[in-house]
Amino acid sequence: MNLRPLSRAAFTFVSAALACTALSACSPNADSTASGHNGSETITVFAAASLTEPFAQIAENFEDENPALAVTMSFAGSADLATQIVEGAPADVFASANEAQMQSVVDAGLTAAPPVIFATNEPTIVVPADNPAAVSSFADLANPEVATVVCAPQVPCGAAELAVETATGVDVAPVSEESSVTDVLGKVTSGQADAGIVYVTDVARAGAAVIGIPIDGADAAVTSYPIASVTDADPGAQAFVDYVTSPAGQAVLADAGFGTP
């Protein structure tokens, strides 16, 4: 007798849990039918994390000009996005922060058209706003007293930093080799590091907490951003790609600090 209320409670809990699972499984379907009724087509854009601000702006402008099209964005590291697309994620457009990750999607036969370079970016020194170690050039980073944080050589921003070291002959001894440019920027904005190597656009979006110091010879490490529509994408996908490469899209990217290809 004692067990009955307990097992009933357990049964209620289990059915509630199962009902939740079933409901959440249903909801995406419900969404897509709803947008279908509106007659609007949704384009899913997978874009590199460094494109977050300009692409949000570009998507807004694009939707204003094309009321029949809606854009949803997924921002993450290019390597993550490329993996997701290769594993079958429903992307219509892929905008990568480097050519290697785009190439892995091309190699998988998943691009609908050859990728187009739509922006460039280059490394720069970033220091806290008060520049505690009085850094003024890339050569200053060779001083072991300057706590410099860079990306690990395995990731694109680290490879770019190494290319600058090679081009300038300066040997930087970093105190930390981070996995992403965001982690480098975080160490500098918090004042934990005296200097970091990030991209020009990262300084633009970090605001007043940091200042950028241009590197002489950074042109040795310019990275190109390719964009392509994905196989079986909706026709609107190519329209979005064309918009990004149009003067209107290029203007938004230039405001965010990106270079033109």
Binding site: A152, V175, S176, E177, E178, S179, D183, G186, K187
Partner: peptide, 13 residues
Amino acid sequence: TITFAGSLEGVTR
């Protein structure tokens, strides 16, 4: 660790 200590082979990684 990655937020506070950084990431350097043999030291913090």
